[in-house]
């Protein structure tokens, strides 16, 4: 690691002015789980690191019946998982946060840092897209709010501009929405998912409506399975419907292919994940229903 200046602003305005002052020569550090690895390998040698560690106001988790959940960007994954507010209003989010990566990352990494890094081989983005999340970004000119879908531009690329800080993640009130989340590891020894999937839908007398089915980790950025969503709208899930949806999902997903798993394998896991999450949502047992 090369020497660098370490700054710890105590307020958001101070942090923003530090970013403005140091420009591209500085890096923002939240939990630092990815940043420090890159710095230790000398892939990155910033002159200045601006740590957000003292901005406690960015750790708050709150719920408002009209606005929904607001999660401070600096909330650690373990904070989200353990929050009684999250557990009460979006238990699936608590489950996702409590199961991602490994205990070390959950205790150190933050949900905001995770989204800004935009590494697809992780969990929050997939879930939050299905939940219809939005993000707040602070800059010197003030705040802007945009849908998470617009924030996640591409592989390791976000809409965050130089000098901006992601401050909060917003989840609309769940209403009658059912949310399910599953992650698949290639082997039990992996800590990163090879595929993850989130289902969000309104179940009306058994029939699904307003279906959001998002696949992540398998793709450069989480992908909404639009054709599968359309197919599922208005349908009550049974084994045959789930199998058909799985085939559709496998066909429309555009998986990445790398040393961790090739496209064909990821496609197979997407099919499996789709079938299982739909049967789980319908309260059916996928173990007896091999496609």
């Amino acid at each position: 690691m090369r020497p660098f200046d370490f700054l710890e602003p105590s307020s958001l305005p101070e942090a923003l002015s530090m970013l403005a002052e140091h420009g591209d020569a500085c890096c923002i550090m939240a939990g630092g789980t990815a940043l420090l690895l890159a710095m230790r390998q000398r892939m990155l040698a910033p002159e200045t690191v601006v740590s957000l560690g003292k901005l406690d106001e960015l750790r708050d988790i709150a719920f408002d019946p009209d606005a929904g959940l607001r999660i401070g960007a600096l909330a650690r994954h373990a904070d989200v998982a353990g929050s009684s507010i999250v557990q009460a209003h979006c238990p699936a989010l608590a489950g996702m946060a409590g199961g991602l990566a490994n205990p070390q990352v959950r205790n150190q990494g933050t949900i905001g840092g995770n989204l800004c890094y935009a590494d697809p081989a992780t969990d929050p983005a997939t879930f939050l897209l299905a939940a219809g999340a939005e993000v707040t970004i602070a800059g010197r000119g003030g705040e802007r709010r945009l849908p998470l879908r617009a924030f996640l531009v591409d592989y390791f690329t976000t809409a965050l501009e130089s000098g901006e800080i992601l401050t909060a993640i917003h989840l609309p009130p769940p209403g009658s929405r059912q949310m399910l989340y599953r992650r698949y590891l290639r082997t039990p020894a992996e800590h990163r998912p090879v595929v993850n999937i989130a289902l969000s839908a309104v179940t009306d007398g058994g029939a699904l409506s307003d279906v959001r089915l998002i696949v992540g980790a398998a793709t450069p950025v989480p992908q909404a399975l639009a054709q599968t969503e359309d197919f599922l709208a208005g349908k009550s899930v049974n084994a045959a419907i789930a199998a058909e949806a799985a085939a559709l999902a496998g066909a429309e997903v555009e998986p990445l292919s790398d040393g961790r798993a090739d496209a064909a394998f990821r496609r197979q896991i997407v099919r499996t994940a789709t079938r299982r999450i739909l049967l789980d949502a319908a309260g059916l047992d996928w173990k007896d229903n091999a496609a």
Binding site: P188, A189, H191, G259, R260
Partner: peptide
């Protein structure tokens, strides 16, 4: 060697066992 690091060369940890 393409995966010469402990993230890509996955030795089983406690939760894998």
């Amino acid at each position: 060697l393409m995966n010469g690091n402990l993230a890509d060369y996955t030795m089983p940890t406690a939760d894998a066992l």
